[in-house]
Simulated assay, not measured.
Amino acid sequence: MVYQSSAQKAEDNQSSGIMLITVGTLGLIGDIFFLIKNPLNMPMFNKYLTCGVMGALFVLFFVMGILAVKSYKIFKGKAAEEDTVFDKITGWCEEELKAEVIDEHMYDDDEVYEKLTDKEDLYFKRTEYIKKRIEKQFMNVDEELIDSFIDGFYTKVFGDEN
């Protein structure tokens, strides 16, 4: 699963909420028009059954839109907290985890002493070391947030080596 930030979730919920509220409102207006005018000259039972089912569907759209807008407000608050944590991790990593430090200490915890030459192995070893250091410094941070951060930080520190 790919990490999705709270800001992205908030944006998705906002656009979904607006769209659902709009469709629900327009659908209810159309449903009421259909119920009153009966433009297709449907028999009475079919008209009420169709309008009842469609009306329930459009009310459901409207309610789901309101719930999505409420979720938008919740995710907007979480996004601000997430940005603060992200900034703290960025600042700490820029001070503590320079390329030389990572390359020097990434073998400390392992029994593997030979230097890695394969770029892929080197990437995984470096990111593993960065993750361990971040998790040690920032204890209660979401693992997916850390993984997302590491991808960008690795490219920033080591460039397009990989």
Rank of each mutant, 00 (worst) to 15 (best):
D147V: 03
E82K: 05
A56G: 13
V69C: 04
G65S: 10
K78G: 08
I89L: 02
K115P: 00
L49R: 01
N41G: 03
I102P: 03
K70I: 11
K76Y: 02
D121K: 12
F86G: 02
D108F: 07
L145N: 04
L40W: 05
L122M: 01
N140V: 02
M54N: 02
M54W: 05
E111Y: 00
Y113Q: 14
N46Q: 12
N46I: 11
G77T: 12
E143P: 07
S148C: 09
E114N: 08
D110G: 09
T127N: 05
N140R: 07
L67F: 13
T117W: 10
L122H: 00
E81H: 08
K76Q: 10
D142I: 12
L57D: 11
K125S: 09
V53N: 10
V53G: 11
R133F: 04
L40N: 12
G52L: 10
E128F: 14
L122T: 03
M139A: 09
I74K: 11
K125R: 15
I36P: 01
M42D: 04
G77E: 13
I74A: 13
M106W: 02
W92I: 03
T50A: 13
M44L: 15
T90P: 00
R133C: 13
V63M: 14
M64F: 07
L145D: 00
A80K: 15
T84C: 06
T90A: 08
R126S: 08
E114A: 15
V85W: 06
K119S: 15
D83G: 09
K76G: 00
E100R: 12
T50C: 09
E111L: 10
A99Y: 01
S148R: 02
T127M: 07
L60T: 03
E95L: 09
K132Y: 04
P43M: 06
K37H: 10
K88E: 12
A99C: 11
D87A: 08
V69P: 00
I36D: 00
T84P: 02
K73H: 12
E128C: 11
F61E: 01
F62E: 02
I66Y: 04
A80S: 14
I146Y: 04
C93T: 06
